[in-house]
Design a binder for these strands. Structure first.
Lengths: 150, 150
DNA sequence: CATGCTGAGTTCACTTGACGAACCGACCAC
DNA sequence: GTGGTCGGTTCGTCAAGTGAACTCAGCATG
């Protein structure tokens, strides 16, 4: 049972959840991926309390996942909008993984709310587990965890 | 800005988070993937309050992600252990996605806490976005979301 | 039999976090 | 100045997480 001897204290799952695991954070990011940038839009679409939204956006900016960019509409004063950074864009697989599980287990009679297509060829997009030798893995059972680094 | 017109009310990301988005749930599953099955082990390794752990395990069982299996050690009374179901195993990509992001952005000087290897060939395993036509996508930017079903 | 031990909880007092409605301040248009 | 909008902040209430103490079943020991 060597798996039980792996070091959990620095686990990346726990670390990532400490950054984006609070309520609303991942939903804010979902909206950011769908093109939402402004406070009022996040608020209207998500329905999260304003105070929570303020806090989550500030946190995501502090973590370098979103950045606050000034903009100015015609006849409007200057405001700020929130855009994904590279670090934020790299959370995309996490959202896709959550979405695919929900599509499989929560959608009624295969009626999936949203589909992802390859922008170039239009084919449906999925997450797959692959190894660097090029094999496609079917399941978690094909994976062996080993303690890294030290 | 057609992205803003997609239906969010049935979003699978939100749905999945409603099931496994509470504090500790995904960490419980991480341990389950590492082979932990018993209440006392979850408690000792995670350090979560017992009441929360009881609640999360019950919830995951109710959702069909874990199942409660009776077992009996020599000279011990019968107890129950928690094992992943197929539905639970299918959450593996979500955990891998969180882990890979943490490895990239939280690990100090590339010192990754844990590595995943292909059980057959030993090569490191990663999540990749691929389309059904066989292309590998580099980024979220290569994806176009379209409203599904209806 | 009485006692103690262990695993798997439950109870409880306390602190933290989320909620929703109201309020605020800058800026623009009229 | 009056009104409107955006992006907040404040506040009272309510839900959730925390940690320590307590419970209970069943096995083992003397």
């Amino acid at each position: 049972m060597s798996e039980l001897l792996l070091d959990r204290s620095r686990c990346s799952v726990a670390g990532t959840l400490a950054v984006v695991g609070e309520k609303w954070s991942l939903l804010v990011l979902r909206e950011a991926f769908l093109g939402v940038r402004r406070f009022a839009d996040f608020h209207r679409i998500l329905g999260a309390p304003r105070a929570v939204l303020t806090d989550r956006l500030a946190r995501l900016v502090a973590e370098g996942i979103l950045r606050r960019v000034p903009y100015q509409d015609d006849g409007e004063r200057q405001r700020h909008e929130y855009r994904l950074t590279r670090k934020g864009v790299d959370l995309y697989p996490t959202l896709v993984a959550l979405m695919e599980w929900g599509d499989r287990y929560l959608a009624e009679d295969g009626d999936v709310p949203m589909e992802l297509r390859h922008r170039d060829c239009g084919a449906p997009v999925h997450l797959t587990l692959t190894c660097e030798a090029g094999h496609t893995l079917d399941s978690a059972r094909d994976v062996r965890p080993v303690s890294g680094g030290s």
